[in-house]
Design a protein around this nucleic acid. Structure first.
Length: 553
RNA sequence: UGGGCCGUAGCCAAGCGGUAAGGCAGCGGGUUUUGAUCCCGUCAUGCGAAGGUUCGAAUCCUUCCGGCCCAGCCA
């Protein structure tokens, strides 16, 4: 049983903070939120955040909202709000109440902006973007005040009202907080609160032509929703000062004063996690889409055969901390294998077929065999497979000669056909190109379900599929998307894509798999975990992950 | 080079002044009709470094070294 499923939880600094806040009575219960911007598909890094926020709410009997942080209509789209909901639900989480949108708080944001203006803590600035950058100073030089910094509150109120009414062009002016142009924290140098955008919004339509910035909207949204612990990633550590400044200077909508805590984002080897780069891969058609099974997106992982439980377990295994880390793929792979090993029905599939003829087996006879669906779990029952004179085995499982470490079929030697008989390779034929065409064997009829009576040991076991009833299938074998551990660091990350990230094979599966359900995991014995593709029309199986392979020749 | 953070094994990560959890990977062995699973064992005299405080330091103090983030009208 996996960690995520047995109730054990690794402790981390956020849990420690919550424990203290609950113990001290600061909050009667916790309220968290998962606040994606609907500008792309969710990826496994978001899964980490989802598991944290929803998981905490579950563990502490609190609530977790799903809130779309939709303050920038230029980049957002309904396609993403739909996919995000699907992904969160698929991961197994349920948000508290209705879905929230920052955009549904636009009216409140505006009133808080007026409050800041009236308090002399915000002003309308007519400096252009370039000038503003100049005035802002640099990391080592302080900024200088905008000439509009001391406009009287009453005048700023009129200006802001005019902004809202559409009285200014895009880029003509912005609303800025009046904080400290010499702050060593750059985001405190009179940050922009509102910008003018004559943009249609997917939720509010054309109701607004001014849109709040993240820093202004996020903390107030948290306050409106009584969020107790606002969790985000490390790059927002500086922004926390602004988060606190805004909440300190407005009349809070209710008793809860949200606090922001930052944890490190997920970095996974051999893939990229930035939405921009994932977008680029999709736009440049380097992958088939956001749900390409090689993508680290939740929809890609789902299509690949990853299960919700395995992703939750993965999140549990990697933990939460503030260290900039780079997680190895093997942790993710171990998490799926652990889940699939327990739950996936076993089956046999030949990915790279070669015909094998059992010459001493009666012609025209087809035998039915009851094979266990899961050798370690009898309760899963049996499946019917067939055996006859001709079967397919994998080309890699036969060699004319080999050393003793090769535990498969060797000319003149014996091997066990899994779930069936022991056979001995007698001879083989090649085709005109010198490629192996047919292997001829004899079988020992006394070895079905038992070892040879004479006590001889046959250590090798190979998988197979009976030829006459075999069903043709296509196998998509995936490997890491990139050929380097940290593609984001490459000069051109697309140049460092793994050319062999997808290899397609055509072979055979057991007849019982003709109507395999999509996204449902199978273990093709000795090959790995596969699931039927949810898009391709025919019988296409995606390899989720191979079996652990500790064999070195 | 201003500021904000972070350094515990190959990777992830507990630890909160009492003598280094756990997972992944690796290695050795056992079981096995999946080179899988499962089981057993092994894997930091050491916590970025150097000083200091203390009976006792990964935990406290000082200095140094290394890494990440911030100068979008993105989030």
């Amino acid at each position: 049983m996996s960690h995520a499923e047995n109730g054990e939880r690794a402790t981390h600094f956020i849990r420690n903070i919550i424990d203290e806040d609950l113990a001290s009575g600061l909050h009667p219960a916790i309220q968290t939120r998962f606040p994606p911007e609907p500008n792309g598909y969710l990826h496994i890094g978001h899964a980490k955040s989802i598991c944290l926020n929803f998981g905490l709410a579950l563990d502490y009997n609190g609530q977790c909202n799903l809130r779309f942080d939709d303050t920038n209509p230029a980049k957002e789209d309904m396609e993403y709000v739909d996919s995000i909901q699907r992904d969160v639900q698929w991961l197994g989480f349920e948000w508290s109440g209705e879905i929230r949108y920052s955009s549904s708080y636009f009216e409140q944001f505006y009133h808080y902006a007026l409050e800041l203006v009236d308090k002399g803590l915000a002003y309308v600035c007519f400096l252009g973007a370039d000038q503003q950058r100049e005035y802002r100073g640099t990391l080592t030089e302080v900024g200088k005040p905008s000439p509009y910094r001391d406009t009287p509150p009453a005048e700023n109120r009129e200006l802001l009202e005019k902004m809202r009414a559409g009285g200014f062009k895009e880029g003509e002016c912005v609303l800025r907080a009046k904080i400290d142009m010499s702050s060593p924290i750059m985001c405190m140098r009179d940050p922009i609160l509102y910008r003018v955008r004559f943009q249609h919004h997917h939720q509010t339509g054309d109701a607004w032509c001014i849109y709040p910035m993240y820093d202004f909207a996020h903390c107030i949204s948290d306050a409106i929703e009584s969020v107790t612990h606002s969790l985000c990633t490390l790059e927002f550590q500086d922004n926390r000062r602004l988060y606190d400044w805004i909440l300190d200077n407005i009349t809070l909508p209710n008793a809860t004063r949200p606090r922001q805590y930052e944890f490190s984002r997920l970095n996974l080897e051999y893939t990229v996690m930035s939405k921009r780069k994932l977008h680029q891969l999709v736009d440049d058609k380097l992958v088939s889409g956001w749900d390409d099974p090689r993508m680290p997106t939740i929809s890609g992982l789902r299509r690949r055969g990853y299960t919700p439980a395995s992703l939750r377990d993965f999140a549990e295994r990697i933990g939460i901390s503030k260290v900039d880390s780079f997680t190895e793929m093997s942790i993710l792979e171990a998490a799926v294998r652990d889940d699939l090993n327990v739950h996936a029905p076993r089956s046999m599939a030949v990915l790279n077929p070669v015909k094998l003829v059992i010459e001493n087996y009666p012609e025209a006879q087809v035998e039915s065999i009851q094979a266990p669906i899961h050798p370690q779990n009898e309760a899963m029952g049996k499946r019917e497979i067939f055996f006859s004179r001709e079967v397919y085995i994998d080309r890699d499982d036969f060699r004319e000669e080999a050393n003793k470490h090769f535990k498969r079929l060797v000319l003149g030697k014996e091997v066990r056909l899994r779930n069936a008989y022991i056979i001995k390779a007698e001879r083989f034929e090649n085709d005109e190109n010198g490629e192996l065409k047919t292997i001829y064997c004899n079988y020992d009829p006394e070895t079905l379900g038992k070892n040879p009576a004479d006590g001889r040991k046959v250590k090798g076991v190979i998988h197979w599929v009976e030829a006459s009833k075999a069903v043709e299938a296509e196998f998509h074998l995936y490997d890491r998307l990139f050929s380097v551990p940290n593609p984001a660091k490459a000069e051109d990350f697309e140049a460092v894509l793994n050319p062999n990230s997808l290899v397609i094979k055509k072979g055979y599966v057991e007849p019982g798999l003709v109507d395999a359900q999509k996204e449902l995991a199978y273990q093709f014995e000795r090959e790995g975990y596969f699931c039927r593709d949810n898009k391709h029309p025919g019988l296409v199986f995606n390899r989720t992950v191979g079996l652990r392979d500790t064999w070195s020749e």
